Amino acid sequence: MWREISRIGKKLVENRLVESHFGNISVRIGNRMLITRSGCALDEITEDGVVEVSIGGSCALDMIASSETIVHRAIYRSTPALAIVHAHCPFAVTLSLLAEGDSITPADSEGQYFLGEMPIVKGGIGSEELAQNLAASLASYKASIIYSHGTFAIGKVLDEAYVLTTQVEHSCKIKYWYDLAKKN
């Protein structure tokens, strides 16, 4: 399974959805999850770059797991997700900073069809507040944007969560350019 995580990590970096050492990826396996290690370069993931931890509560390996492990746990407990991708998509971050409300509505037809409203949630990196807010949001949506931080997308498989991540960023990019053009 670490090879699948590695493949998605490389795609995230290649498509500029994250800088190499930012973002994280996990997969649920029963009551456990495989998650990228803290500080792991997503385009260089090896078997040692993935940690297996409990979904039920903290464990000793949390010390080396992603700083967002608490958030992944909460999402797995509150949703049917089997895979999670967290990226630092630049246009999604930008629009979250510019948004006047608590969501972004895509301007493009694909975004409207596949995503609909994109909620913006708040909470500090790796915090209990973020874990609770994202888990609640992702119980109703397949992807959410964290204010000033990035995106979280869920799926039944990693490819689904990855595609949702690309769709959010594409829709945010189109909306940014569209809103910019309207001002001129």
Rank of each mutant, 00 (worst) to 15 (best):
Val157Glu: 13
Arg37Val: 11
Thr105Glu: 14
Val50Arg: 03
Ile84Ala: 01
Thr94Pro: 04
Leu134Thr: 12
Thr94Met: 15
Ala131Leu: 09
Ser103Trp: 12
Ser140Arg: 15
Cys59Asn: 11
Glu160Tyr: 04
Val27Ala: 07
Pro90Glu: 03
Glu52Asn: 13
Val168Leu: 09
His21Val: 00
Gly116Ala: 10
His86Ala: 03
Gly23Ile: 06
Thr36Pro: 10
Ile154Gly: 02
Ile120Tyr: 10
Pro90Tyr: 02
Ala81Leu: 07
Glu169Arg: 07
Asp43Cys: 08
Arg73His: 13
Met1Tyr: 09
Ala74Thr: 11
Gly39Met: 00
Val13Ala: 00
Thr166Cys: 14
Tyr147Val: 03
Phe22Lys: 09
Trp177Ile: 15
Tyr176Leu: 15
Gln132Ser: 13
Leu164His: 07
Ala65His: 10
Ser148Tyr: 09
His72Ala: 11
Val71Ala: 01
Glu169Phe: 07
Glu128His: 07
Arg77Ile: 05
Pro90Leu: 03
Pro106Arg: 06
Thr166His: 00
Lys10Val: 14
Ala107Asn: 02
Val51Asp: 11
Pro106Glu: 08
Cys59Tyr: 03
Val71Leu: 01
Trp177Val: 14
Asp62Pro: 01
Ser67Asn: 10
Gly56Tyr: 04
Asn15Lys: 10
Asp43His: 10
Glu100Ser: 12
Gly111Ser: 13
Ala136Ile: 03
Trp2Tyr: 14
Asp102Gly: 15
Leu134Glu: 01
Val121Asn: 00
Glu52Tyr: 08
Ile25Phe: 01
Val53His: 05
Ser20His: 06
Trp2His: 12
Glu14Trp: 08
Val13Tyr: 12
Phe152Ala: 04
Glu4Val: 04
Ser140Cys: 10
Asn184Thr: 06
Ala135Ile: 12
Ser171Tyr: 01
Ile145Thr: 06
Leu130Pro: 11
Met63Leu: 12
Ala161Phe: 08
Leu180Trp: 13
Ser144Trp: 09
Ile120Val: 14
Gly101Asn: 04
His21Ile: 01
Leu97Pro: 04
Asn31Arg: 15
Val13Ile: 10
Pro119Gln: 03
Arg28Glu: 08
Phe114Met: 01
